[in-house]
């Protein structure tokens, strides 16, 4: 919309512009700078052009990490979105202590700091003293997330689901609450089944919030760092080493600043591209434009 001009508005926006410039744009430009130069120290930089980028793209380990990352993000979406919607559908509606209690319980995992979440699960999943891990072993399962890649994977996934499904559920719940009661009454009168009500009323009306949920969960899971770092440290082997952790190891551990910078830029572009594709695709699904 074309709003009338008010110069005073700039004063209000200025702090944000400044913060974004310092926290995002400047660092990003520094990274771009590093990615095209070989830097040995202050004043000792040599132009290398696209060499770092070539090196990154040829790196096997990086391709593995990227593949692992995508698999992980897809798994997160595939579990959390349907599960979140299912929880929202089961939640009590209207005002009352039941609704309030459910909302508080759901919000709890979202309030816990990420590294604490990692620590909680690290203990919870331990085979000797952890409630979850020990219970699984008692059941006769050979469960060991520090040694077995599959167990490690499942544990990281379970942790993410525990941590973030609430968010999806809360968003979906908000979407459901916005549906006028007349729609349910009409569906009743039309003799619609529970499934039809979901498919033709609830799902279409939740579209908007689900788009947001998918985007948030995709971007967040694609950039996951803290929790697996605390829980598994990326192991066993590289089984749970995702992109961000790989990147950190490269930059901080091996001090390969140039390669890491090039990698960062590529990483950034991938997230941007995926988000864009997701967004344009999902906003058209269900509106008839995709047909």
């Amino acid at each position: 919309m074309d709003k009338p001009w008010n110069n005073r508005a700039w004063l209000l926006v200025l702090p944000v512009v400044a913060i974004v410039a310092f926290s995002a744009i400047l660092p990003l430009m520094t990274v771009v700078n590093y990615s095209v130069q070989d830097i040995f120290g202050p004043g000792q930089a040599y132009w290398v052009g696209t060499e770092w980028y070539r090196k990154v793209l040829e790196d096997e380990r990086l391709r593995d990490a990227l593949l692992r990352q995508m698999l992980y993000s897809l798994a997160v979406l595939a579990i959390e979105i349907p599960l979140g919607v299912a929880i929202a559908l089961c939640m009590p509606s209207g005002k009352g202590w039941r609704t309030s209690l459910t909302l508080v319980l759901l919000a709890l995992p979202l309030l816990i700091p990420w590294n604490v979440v990692g620590t909680i699960w690290q203990i919870f999943a331990r085979g000797d003293i952890g409630l979850g891990g020990a219970a699984l072993q008692r059941l006769g399962l050979d469960y060991n997330y520090t040694g077995d890649p599959l167990d490690a994977w499942l544990t990281v996934l379970a942790m993410d689901v525990w941590h973030w499904t609430s968010l999806v559920a809360l968003l979906a719940y908000a979407g459901l609450q916005a549906i006028p009661p007349a729609f349910y009454q009409a569906a009743k009168i039309d003799g619609a089944s529970r499934w039809s009500v979901f498919r033709y009323i609830q799902l279409p009306k939740m579209r908007g919030v689900l788009i947001i949920a998918v985007l948030l969960r995709f971007m967040d899971s694609f950039m996951i760092y803290t929790e697996p770092f605390v829980l598994t440290g990326g192991g066993p082997g590289n089984a749970t080493t995702f992109l961000s952790q790989f990147l950190t190891r490269m930059a901080v551990g091996q001090f390969d600043l140039g390669v890491a910078a090039a990698f960062s830029i590529i990483y950034f572009l991938i997230v941007l591209l995926f988000s864009y594709v997701f967004y344009t695709f999902i906003t058209k699904v269900g509106t008839g434009d995709a047909r």
């Binding site: 006028p180 007349a182 729609f183 009454q185 009409a186 009743k188 009168i189 039309d190 003799g191 033709y200 009323i201 279409p204 009306k205 269900g286």
Partner: peptide, 18 residues
């Protein structure tokens, strides 16, 4: 309602969008 053989038109149009 579904067992009463009635139909209803509401204040705001209720249609199945999709």
């Amino acid at each position: 309602p579904e067992r009463r053989n009635i139909a209803q038109v509401f204040q705001f149009p209720v249609i199945y969008d999709t």
